[in-house]
């Protein structure tokens, strides 16, 4: 189909799975972090904010190498998992999922942080004075009023994970069906001078990404975060 090989389809399926999981996990993770960051000012917040933004600065292969050390059997996390009778995380889907979560973290946290800051504390205070508990408040007030921020966060995370390359290259080991995602496959195609296959996949990726971004931004114009 579309001139793609089974190998290509495998990579596409794997990539979409990785992006979907990364986005879901990050929305769950980034929401409380962003809320906390937006709910005041302190040195600890500045510290956390800086740490979250680090993946923007670090070259992906460097980040990948550190993750390789930490998640491998000799690293603190990998070693702990091994002691518990589990496998370390290098060269596994779980490993690149974790890497993607870290790598795309700023793209989820920053739009939400921005949305929550713009929203301010007032709507939440109003809702609590009306008897709504924290979870109720989140779903009945904060989420509807910051929908734009959530859409942007999810889109950027998803798109950024699709394009993720350096980290996965280092940490994943390019295992078909497990860690060989689309960007790595395109790179392999190009490096092995299989330009036709590389072009096909790149074009697909490009069109897909463009359509997603366009639809989301068009949609999002209607749902700006409401200012109080």
């Amino acid at each position: 189909m579309l001139g793609l090989s089974p190998e290509d389809w495998q990579a596409i399926e794997l990539t979409l799975r990785l992006c979907l999981y990364t986005t879901l996990i990050l929305l769950l993770l980034a929401t409380p972090i962003a809320w906390w960051l937006a709910s005041g000012r302190s040195w600890l917040r500045t510290l956390v904010q800086s740490v979250v933004a680090l993946p923007l600065v670090l070259p992906p292969t460097v980040l990948g190498f550190y993750l390789l050390i930490v998640l491998g059997p000799l690293g603190p996390i990998g070693a702990t998992l091994e002691q518990m009778g589990l496998n370390h995380l290098a060269f596994s889907f779980e490993g690149i999922l974790l890497a993607s979560v870290i790598y795309s973290m700023p793209f989820a946290v920053q739009p939400l942080h921005e949305a929550f800051s713009t929203l301010g504390r007032r709507p939440s205070e109003v809702a609590s004075s009306l008897g709504a508990g924290p979870i109720d408040r989140f779903f009945s007030v904060i989420l509807p009023l910051t929908r734009g921020g959530f859409i942007v966060a999810a889109t950027l995370t998803f798109a950024h994970t699709i394009g993720e390359f350096g980290v996965i290259l280092m940490l994943g080991g390019s295992i078909p069906g497990e860690t060989r995602v689309l960007s790595v496959l395109i790179y392999d195609h190009a490096e092995s001078m299989n330009y036709a296959a590389a072009h096909r996949l790149s074009a697909m990726l490009l069109i897909f990404a463009f359509v997603v971004l366009f639809v989301v931004y068009a949609f999002n114009r209607r749902f700006r975060t409401v200012r109080f």
């Binding site: 007032r122 809702a127 609590s128 004075s129 008897g131 508990g133 509807p144 409401v226």
Partner: peptide
């Protein structure tokens, strides 16, 4: 706050816009 059973009216408009 949500368990204190109090009513609050703020200075500025605080109706939920959605």
């Amino acid at each position: 706050t949500e368990q204190r059973r109090l009513g609050l009216v703020f200075q500025e408009h605080s109706l939920l816009p959605h």
